[in-house]
Structure formats: structure tokens, C-alpha cells
């Protein structure tokens, strides 16, 4: 069994669909967290889902936009740890708007050619994120 140290101050992103934590690492831009230690743990045994991934982040996470997790993987929970104790554990809320978090993949969209055009996605009434410009829904994996 793999052992990863418990954290004192930070967050634990748990119940991540197995095999997708690297994609979340990229989308959350965890590489830009300069004052944090990060552990990605893949294929952890889970009673609920068989296997899952976990991301542990020790340090300042205030710059993270965690709400995007709710869309990317609705089963995810985020536990906040202070002084070695869990002070809260919840599912993030879906944000109404995502700016420069995910990119529109429609080659006919203005975002594909316009210089410095923000990639803006809005939450539709059916719970999908659609590009504010071309209205194409974002799919996690290209078709």
C-alpha cells in the first residue's frame, strides 16, 4: 500500500474518477501554485467506485478556482484541512461562468482565430457549459 503523508494545511480533492487526475491537474493549473506541495494519487481502492484518484495540496490554495471541479466530475469532494483537522468537506457549486478555464474546440468559433480572445463558457439551463461565442457545448474528451 502506497503511503502519502497527511497534510496539515490545505485541501484534499477526493473521489476523482480514476485516471483523470492529471487532466484536473492541468485544468486547475496546479503547476502555477508556487507555494504548495502537491500529490497526485491514482487508482486508489474505493468502496464506492472501485478505484479513484486523489489530489492532496499542502499550502496556500486561495488562487484556485475549485468550482470548475463540480462540472468536470460531479462526484468530487473537497476537504479543507487546517492544523491537521478537516474543517469542511463539500461538493463545489457549479460556476455560472468559466473564463479561460476550458477552451472552445469549435474550429468555426471566433475564439479559434481572434488574438487574445478569452474563452468564456456559460452554464446552460440543461447543466452544460456552452461557449459564449458559438454556443458549442464543451466535451471533456474530443469526439
Amino acid at each position: 500500500m502506497l503511503n502519502v503523508d497527511a497534510i496539515n494545511n490545505g485541501i484534499v480533492v477526493d473521489h476523482i474518477q480514476a485516471g483523470t487526475s492529471l487532466e484536473l491537474y492541468r485544468l486547475l493549473e496546479l503547476d502555477k501554485l508556487e507555494n504548495a506541495s502537491i500529490a497526485l494519487i491514482q487508482n486508489v481502492r474505493s468502496n464506492k467506485s472501485g478505484k479513484k484518484d486523489i489530489i492532496k495540496i499542502e499550502g496556500d490554495v486561495s488562487a484556485l478556482n475549485l468550482n470548475i471541479l463540480a462540472y468536470l466530475d460531479p462526484g468530487i469532494t473537497v476537504a479543507t484541512i487546517q492544523d491537521g483537522k478537516i474543517v469542511s468537506k463539500k461538493r463545489p457549486d457549479l460556476p455560472r461562468k468559466l473564463v479561460n478555464v476550458i477552451r472552445c474546440r469549435n474550429p468555426r468559433c471566433i475564439t479559434s482565430v481572434e488574438e487574445e480572445c478569452e474563452h468564456i463558457f456559460l452554464l446552460s439551463s440543461t447543466g452544460q457549459y456552452r461557449c459564449a461565442y458559438c454556443e458549442q457545448a464543451f466535451e471533456m474528451k474530443p469526439e
Binding site: R108, C109, I110, V113, Y133
Partner: peptide, 10 residues
């Protein structure tokens, strides 16, 4: 009129 979708919104 623009061939790219969303250009007028931009």
C-alpha cells in the same frame, strides 16, 4: 457578417 461564429458578439 463573419465566417467565424461569435465574431459579432466579440
Amino acid at each position: 457578417r463573419h465566417p467565424k461564429e461569435g465574431a459579432p458578439l466579440r
